[in-house]
Simulated assay, not measured.
Amino acid sequence: MGQSRRILRSLRVAIGLSLALAAAGCESLEKLNPFEEHKKPLPGARQPVFPEGVPGVDYSSGPGQPSNSNAAIDLPNPPAAGSTPSR
């Protein structure tokens, strides 16, 4: 009888935790927070800042390469064939 109580208790804890996690991700519960200060939106009409897109940005091409993409990388010279590496 003790084993079945442990299993039942573990099952209840698991269900409770899963319900708590599900409720934490729910957007509709945001209204239930009594401590949240609701901000009023600023008065006035909303207008897009750049209605035709951001000036100077070409959306038809991919992102450009960084300016240092063609920089030379200084690699150490490989040891000569047949020689042992010095320490």
Rank of each mutant, 00 (worst) to 15 (best):
K31H: 06
L29S: 05
T84D: 04
L21Q: 12
C26T: 09
S86D: 05
P41I: 02
G16H: 07
P76G: 03
G62D: 15
P79Y: 03
V54R: 10
P63E: 15
A71K: 11
S4W: 12
E36C: 02
T84R: 04
Y59N: 10
P55V: 04
E36Y: 08
G62K: 13
A72S: 13
L11W: 13
G82P: 00
P66D: 14
G82L: 07
R9Q: 14
G64L: 10
E52P: 04
A14E: 11
M1D: 09
S60W: 01
S61L: 11
G62W: 15
L32T: 06
R6E: 12
F50P: 13
A71L: 04
A22T: 14
G53T: 14
G44L: 02
Q3K: 11
K40E: 04
A45F: 00
L19M: 08
S61M: 07
A22M: 12
E36M: 03
R6T: 08
S61G: 00
R12G: 01
L42F: 02
G2W: 13
S67K: 11
P66W: 09
A14H: 09
A72M: 04
P78L: 08
I73N: 00
A72T: 10
S69Y: 12
S61T: 14
A80G: 09
S69K: 07
I73Q: 05
S10F: 12
A24T: 05
G64A: 10
P41L: 14
E27W: 13
E27G: 13
K40D: 11
S67E: 14
T84Y: 06
P85D: 03
Q47R: 08
V57P: 00
R6S: 15
P63W: 11
L42Q: 12
P51Q: 01
N33I: 07
V49Y: 14
E37M: 00
L19S: 12
R5F: 06
A23S: 15
L17C: 10
Q65C: 02
N70S: 12
A14N: 12
L19Q: 04
S67I: 05
N70G: 03
R12Q: 12
E37Y: 08
R9K: 15
Q3M: 09
A24C: 02
R6F: 15
A24W: 07
P41Y: 01
G44T: 07
S69T: 03
P41A: 15
P78M: 06
N68Q: 04
H38Q: 13
S86Q: 03
P76H: 01
K31I: 15
G82C: 05
A23C: 09
M1K: 10
L8W: 13
G62E: 15
N77E: 14
Y59W: 11
R46I: 07
P85R: 10
P41Q: 08
N77L: 10
N68M: 05
D74C: 00
L17P: 00
A71G: 00
N33W: 00
S83N: 07
D74G: 11
P76A: 05
V49Q: 14
H38A: 09
I7P: 01
R9I: 13
P85G: 03
P76N: 04
P78I: 00
P55M: 01
G82T: 13
E37C: 00
P48Q: 07
S83Y: 02
E52Q: 15
N77P: 02
L29A: 05
P48M: 04
A45T: 01
H38I: 14
G25Q: 01
A24R: 07
Q3G: 06
M1W: 13
F35H: 08
G82K: 12
